[in-house]
Amino acid sequence: MATLSQSAQKYPTVYWQIGQFTGFGFYLMTALFCLVSACGGGDSEELLIFAATSLTNALTEIEADYEEATGVEARISYGGSQALSRQIESGAPADVFISAGAGPVTSLQDAGLVAEGSALSLLVNRLVLVARADSREPASLSDLTRSDYSRIGLADPNLAPAGAYAREALSHEGVWEAIQAKVVFGADVRVTLTYVETGNVDVALVYATDAMTAPDLSLFDIVPDGNYTPIVYPAVAVSESPELNLAKEFIEYLRSPASVATFRRNGFEPSP
């Protein structure tokens, strides 16, 4: 009995008071947060854009211009195009989707999520050859078979669209088989670019837009456009968007001369 009454006196009140205080604090904070997020929503127009990661630099600039020009708050979620397309199919509340490549948009179209008449080809990206500043200048893709180039970086065609485009271009030139022994595959186009920057390969085929981010490298525009499937970036308004007009206006804004200039500066060409 003695131990019982001792421990009963020893514990309860203090812990319980702190417990009530802390527990109450957590619940009070929740109430506050809910209040803030409920009130914070409606005061300005908002647009949610899902965009391919490769657009990050260009779109960050355009986003700021757009917000200043229109007063609309734009939020941009960057990711792999295929992943973003899947998210929209699962109910992500995107208003606009800008994809690298047509495939992810096609699957949205099949799901009935592309607003009627909103789809357009916004941009094209191109393949270029990059090399370290001190390396020999190649005149054409067939030069890659020469012994000056002992290692050639490509994105893995099975993992990255850039690699598939590169394989197409090299096959068209008739050198794909001949350079097999020298090819080093990167998991994606960014990694492949890093191989050149760090001197682990002599040259690599990458997107023009990625090449622009590496000012120390020499850029050779020697991959003929007709040699591979055009790399198109379509933009669409999502049919379930509650801001459909705003979404379409944003896509229009992406075609304005100022936006086109920004895209160009980042290595993209406007789609013809």
């Binding site: 812990y15 319980w16 702190i18 417990g19 802390t22």
Partner: peptide, 16 residues
Amino acid sequence: FTITLPLAYRGIMAGV
């Protein structure tokens, strides 16, 4: 509310 939870407070808070 008067015995179990007050006595278990320390462990509960650690878990929280």
